[in-house]
């Protein structure tokens, strides 16, 4: 074998891909992301601006749209703090204490992730519907849960349940209990230890979890669609109003409202990226 052939063979046996293979791999994967992920975002922007700036402002200022925005904000205002409090309590219990059934608890917390949004809505219909467990009692006391705001809040609580706990559990487990023990030994109370040691250590993961839970709470569609009853101006959240407008062929108005949620998604991703960079640096 000639020297040139030998060195060529040695080159192909390097522990790395050839520059050509790298370029092809990068090209294919970025093209895939552009087609499947970037294109839908571009479409939202293009379609939302289909009727110009005034059309955009009109679409968002329209009474039913305003009611939908207000309802979405209200639901998130209930859901996110509740689930953040739960996520903190659950992660704290799981990471800092030993008890039987811990693995089962972690699996149960993740459960809503593996349930279809539509099924998540259905369970509340079965509980609070006319033939449901509490349906008769609620009707007798004139309390409306289904097809009203409480039902939407409950369904959203269910689907966003795991987000905060999921972000916090691995982090708090990795951090262990050494710092807490030091604080307790130095005479700090349990509450003071939690507020000055546990919470600051976990604040960035908490922020990421809250952001993801919030994005999902404001954007939830399937579960809310089942329990809301689709009453315009009353029980339509932004995603449900988007659906109605789209099905009525008010495409520009649908995308205008949708663009608010797309913007929220982008902000969520950017902040998440910033938090991760902070963690890496």
């Amino acid at each position: 074998m000639s020297d040139a052939a030998l060195s060529r063979r040695a080159a192909t046996r390097a522990a790395d891909e050839t520059p050509l293979a790298k370029a092809i791999a990068i090209g294919i994967s970025m093209a895939f992301l552009a087609v499947f992920f970037l294109a839908p975002l571009v479409v939202v922007v293009v379609e939302a601006s289909g009727k110009g700036l005034t059309g955009y402002i009109d679409a968002i200022g329209e009474p039913d749209a305003r009611a939908a925005i207000l309802l979405t904000l209200t639901v998130a205002a209930f859901v996110v703090p509740l689930n953040a409090a739960f996520g903190l309590a659950a992660a704290w219990a799981i990471a800092k204490f030993q008890f039987a059934g811990k693995n089962l608890l972690v699996t149960l917390i993740d459960l809503p992730f593996s349930v279809s949004p539509v099924v998540s809505g259905l369970v509340f219909v079965l509980l609070f519907g006319a033939q449901g467990w509490f349906g008769g009692w609620l009707a007798a006391h004139h309390v409306k849960v289904l097809f009203a705001v409480p039902g939407i809040v409950l369904a959203t609580l269910f689907v966003t349940f795991p987000f905060v706990a999921r972000e916090l559990i691995p982090l708090m487990q990795a951090q262990g209990t050494v710092e807490e023990e030091a604080a307790l030994t130095l005479g700090a109370s349990g509450l003071k230890t939690f507020l000055t040691v546990t919470l600051p250590n976990a604040k960035w993961a908490l922020l990421t979890g809250v952001l993801l839970a919030n994005a999902r709470a404001m954007g939830e569609f399937g579960a809310v669609s089942v329990v809301s009853g689709h009453i315009r101006g009353l029980t339509n959240t932004i995603p449900l109003q988007v659906e109605i407008l789209y099905n009525e062929y008010s495409i520009a108005a649908a995308f205008a409202l949708a663009s608010l949620l797309a913007l929220l998604a982008l902000v969520t991703l950017v902040v998440k990226l910033a938090v991760e960079r902070r963690g890496a640096g």
Binding site: L41, E47, G219, P239, V242, E243, F255, A258
Partner: peptide, 11 residues
């Protein structure tokens, strides 16, 4: 994970 499914759907 962040983009609501309905928005992705219409897009």
């Amino acid at each position: 994970f962040a983009l609501p499914t309905a928005v992705a759907g219409i897009a």
